[in-house]
Design a protein around this nucleic acid. Structure first.
Length: 912
RNA sequence: GGACUCAUAGCUCAGUUGGUUAGAGCACCUGCUUCACACGCAGGGGGUCACUGGUUCGAGUCCAGUUGAGUCCA
């Protein structure tokens, strides 16, 4: 057996085991026939962008997935974690276009085909780095299944869905207002628009009445550059200020012409003057007003946000922001600008390009979502459970107010829409009837048989219109043979989705609808949903509470952290600071304490190895067989009791998705109960031949169970120790062949051996721990901290006489910082009154003042507590209404307090 | 404007149907190189549980309101 080194060095251990696991195929999730009866547990990764690099958010998210998958494996499930990346339309195209720009080229110089070749070669070269980084973190994903949303079979799924939804009438083409990104030059869905309060200027502008020269109507606008696009002034029909003017005309001050005054209820009477300029091409509400009044929009903007000829000579060619200034100047010269004031309003920004979007009237493809009602029911009725539960409200609210999804993007990188138009067809005049006429519009995967007569749609699909199929397109859908090979029937629906609440609409809701629509039609809802649980992580923030981002540079590089603290340290640290559903302020010292815990674990194993020869650890049975229940003392019962409680707690945490609580429970048990107490008392016991074997066997048991419980959190060090301590045989792996026992299994195994955890002994053990604490505190207060006393005298409390005897006392000498114990009192001693006994320490000098002061302080405190308890117990209302258990507790407490008070008074009296 | 979340020790956070004297990690102070671990051991200081009311025998916990921070949707 290899010697365990003094401190844990993660680097080589991590490399060694990851390679070994991979080589042995430990990550593979195999489909099993139904009659094998092995439960399936599957997770699909939220596919990171193929351009992505590992962030702290990924670390948290993927560590949690790995924890779930590894735990499922240890619980005997066939675990399958499916990895992959997303082609990320805009993001990836932007990256490659940026490279082109360095060569002073645009994608148009290359043409569509050449450009796409370039993107593919970028992807082959540099894409998907993040998957390699996840391996450094220890992710046990089934890499042989790695998916990409532009893989041929995946594309087939995407296009199949398009054709199917088109045939069902869910997809249509329409000229409507969209969110246009003037930088990416594409339409965006509502979800890709971020509303931000933005400072600007509110311009007050007057329009002269045509028939009453010198009389004006005033309007307020933040966008004077769109005035040439005005087609009317609207007022509220019930606004008495304007009733007489409805139907008249005003002069539009820029690109001067007459426009009508119309009445529409959409106008807010209380905003500004109560009159509104109507610019249907550049505002959603105005567009609707224009439609109601049959007013033709005037589009004064180019797609890239510059003003065009319709904006008039002075403005044409200017960028929209420059145009705004210029328009204000022109209005000022014309005397039309009444006032300018600073103003803050909400402006929609493009999520990717971070510039204000333009509402723009364009032809786009739209999707009417399928299965909206079922999607609500799936979550409302608990077929899909959200953790934390409150996100289901957000989800349901979105579904209640759902809008059609703009699924077309004016990009090249993506799934090109499988629609062909008959040559010569004017796309600008396409009607709904044309769309459904196969002689005019062809929709299919294969394309038309006579391609020379058709022109394919230029647009590609929104990236999310491919990722919403992720839970099944990654498992071969719609190809039956591929699905069988992937084990679709076995692994779908997946068990748990781990993701951030920021993509609840983008992704989670849409996946649910897609699953319901396309999988196992006709079968019950719970067979069609894509996952049974959704765990929403918090967002990792920096110390100031800001979101971590590349542009702020406030995110540590996870690979640096792995280098510094080990992957296990990073994993344990990040999990322990991530309570369910709350945002997390990142603190590097927590990662450091994760590393510290690994080192503690390491050294406990090291100490075990140094304490005595290793015996047969090859199975739970062999370890149990080495226990000698007849020799169990309070420490043994105590540590077993707490081990069982910890296993139970971790079990509970996994069913409730409380990962940080699980980590905390194991940490506390192992460090405080096992290392700080059990191992310390063992140091005496292993010196004694009669107690040695039992004590070491118990250590072996605790270490084994701890490694099993801990493995999902810190996979590398646990695998290493599993082998170093002889739990695993050559060629086997903790991660694959280990099996975690639940509390009841352990209790049964103990029972079979006649081992019953004695709760009374365990309680006595806990009391002795508290007594030791109290004793050491008293000792330190007397100025004796760290001083090893030759003999400590004691008078044991009758209730604990069986647990603190002349025979057992020497086991605690180390903890009590003494060489030996002796029953009885000594004169002129420092006294410590504890639960188990009163301990007497030889005072070095004769000064009793400090001792008196300490005891007096203690007496005051206990007197106060007694008064409090007595007051409660003499309260008639409390006695009559409180439950008996609470009442008994209070009475017992009072008795203990009084006994203690008597003892302290006795000691004080003895001091004189 | 609507919905949701949060406010507890210097910092980051636990605190599960209301029940002894409110906990942890880090930081700080003191002591200890004791046959695993100084990435350690032991001890200590530090909190009006944001505020105001209410319900209750009893409130950090439940209810209402106020203030502040944040998120999402309009």
């Amino acid at each position: 057996m290899a010697q365990i080194t003094k401190s844990y060095e993660p680097r080589d251990v991590e490399k060694k085991w990851y390679a070994a696991w991979q080589q042995a195929g430990c990550f593979a999730g195999h489909a099993k026939p139904a009659d094998v009866g092995k439960p399936a547990y599957s997770i699909v990764i939220p596919p990171p962008n193929v351009t992505g690099v590992l962030t702290m958010g990924h670390v948290l998210n993927n560590t949690l997935q790995d924890i779930l998958i590894r735990r499922a494996r240890l619980e005997g499930c066939e675990a399958m974690w499916l990895p992959g990346t997303d082609h990320a339309g805009i993001a990836t195209q932007t990256v490659v276009e940026r490279e082109l720009r360095k060569e002073k080229k645009t994608r148009h110089h290359l043409g569509r085909e050449k450009f796409l070749e370039k993107v593919w070669s970028w992807r082959d070269d540099k894409g998907g780095i993040i998957l390699k980084q996840l391996q450094a973190l220890g992710a046990s994903a089934d890499w042989d299944r790695t998916q990409f949303t532009m893989d041929p079979h995946y594309s087939k799924a995407v296009l199949t869905v398009f054709a199917d939804l088109f045939a069902k009438g869910h997809i249509y083409r329409g000229k409507r207002m969209v969110n246009w990104c003037p930088v990416s030059l594409t339409a965006l869905s509502d979800e890709e628009v971020i509303m931000k309060p933005t400072k600007g200027i509110l311009y007050q502008i007057r329009y002269e009445l045509v028939h009453q020269p010198g009389q004006y109507i005033e309007v307020k606008t933040t966008r004077p550059e769109t005035i040439p696009g005005d087609v009317a002034i609207a007022v509220h029909p019930d606004d008495p200020r304007y009733t007489a003017l409805i139907g008249q005309s005003v002069w539009r001050p820029l690109n001067r012409t007459q426009i009508p005054i119309i009445a529409d209820t959409a106008v807010d009477k209380d905003f500004g003057s109560g009159a509104l300029k109507i610019t249907p091409a550049h505002d959603k509400v105005d567009f609707e007003v224009g439609q109601r009044h049959k007013l033709l929009p005037i589009d004064v903007l180019e797609p890239d946000g510059t003003l065009n000829a319709l904006a008039g000579q002075e403005l044409a060619g200017l960028d929209r922001f420059a145009g705004r200034k210029k328009a204000a100047e022109l209005l000022k010269e014309l005397g039309a600008l009444v006032k300018e004031e600073p103003y803050e309003n909400n402006v929609g920004y493009s999520e990717r390009a971070d510039v204000p979007i333009e509402p723009r009237l364009t032809w786009q493809w739209w999707l009417k979502y399928p299965r909206i009602e079922e999607a609500k029911a799936a979550v409302r009725d608990g077929h899909i459970k959200f953790y934390p539960e409150r996100w289901s409200k957000v989800y349901l609210h979105w579904l209640e107010n759902i809008q059609d999804w703009c699924i077309s993007r004016q990009l090249w990188w993506g799934h090109r829409i499988p629609v062909w138009y008959a040559k010569g067809l004017d796309k600008e005049k396409l009607t709904e009837a044309d769309l459904r006429d196969p002689t005019k519009v062809h929709v299919s995967l294969a394309g038309p048989a006579d391609p020379e007569n058709w022109v394919q749609e230029d647009d590609v699909l929104d990236t999310w219109a491919s990722s919403w199929l992720w839970p099944f397109a990654t498992m071969g859908w719609p190809d039956k043979a591929a699905m069988d090979k992937a084990g679709f029937d076995y692994f779908y629906p997946t068990a748990t989705l781990v993701t951030g609440p920021d993509i609840i609409f983008f992704w989670v809701a849409r996946m649910i609808m897609a699953g319901l629509e396309f999988i196992r039609p006709g079968e019950p809802l719970e067979r069609r949903i894509p996952f049974k649980n959704v765990y929403f992580t918090g967002i990792i923030r920096d110390q100031q509470g800001r979101k971590m981002s590349k542009s702020l540079g406030n995110s540590p590089d996870p690979l640096d952290l792995i280098e510094k603290y080990g992957a296990d340290g990073l994993r344990f640290g990040i999990v322990s600071i991530a309570p369910q559903g709350q945002d997390i302020r990142f603190q590097e010292d927590r990662i450091e304490s994760g590393k510290g815990f690994c080192n503690k674990l390491w050294n406990a194993a090291r100490f075990r190895q140094m304490s005595g020869d290793m015996a047969d650890n090859s199975s739970l049975g062999t370890i149990l067989g080495r226990l000698e229940p007849a020799k169990f003392d309070a420490d043994d019962h105590g540590v077993l009791d707490r081990l069982l409680a910890t296993v139970r707690e971790v079990d509970r945490c996994f069913t409730e998705f409380e990962f940080s609580a699980a980590a905390q429970a194991i940490y506390t048990f192992f460090w405080n109960d096992f290392c700080d107490w059990y191992v310390e008392v063992s140091k005496a016991k292993v010196q004694d031949a009669s107690g040695k074997a039992n004590s070491l066997a118990l250590q072996d048991l605790v270490l084994r169970e701890t490694l099993l419980q801990l493995h999902p959190f810190v996979p590398f060090i646990t695998e290493e120790l599993w082998h170093l301590l002889g739990y695993g045989t050559e060629g086997s792996f903790l991660m694959r062949d280990g099996s975690v026992e639940g509390t009841s299994q352990l209790v049964d195994a103990f029972g079979a051996l006649g081992v019953l955890v004695d709760l009374k002994a365990s309680a006595a053990n806990r009391m002795l721990q508290l007594s030791a604490s109290k004793y050491r505190a008293d000792k330190a207060a007397a100025g004796l901290a760290g001083v090893r006393l030759a003999t400590v005298h004691y008078e044991v409390n009758a209730a604990y006489a069986a647990y603190f005897t002349p025979q057992t006392a020497p086991n605690y000498a180390r903890i009590f910082e003494t060489t030996s114990f002796q029953a009885g009192t000594i004169p002129d001693a420092i006294n410590s009154v504890t639960g188990v006994a009163t301990f007497y320490m030889q005072r070095p000098a004769g000064d009793t003042a400090a001792e008196k002061a300490r005891l007096t302080k203690e007496l005051e405190a206990i007197t106060k507590h007694i008064a409090g308890t007595e007051a409660r117990l003499s309260n008639e209302a409390f006695v009559s209404k409180a439950p008996p258990a609470v009442l008994d507790g209070a009475r017992k407490q009072l008795a203990d307090q009084r006994a203690k008070k008597v003892e302290i008074e006795r000691l004080l009296a003895a001091l004189g």
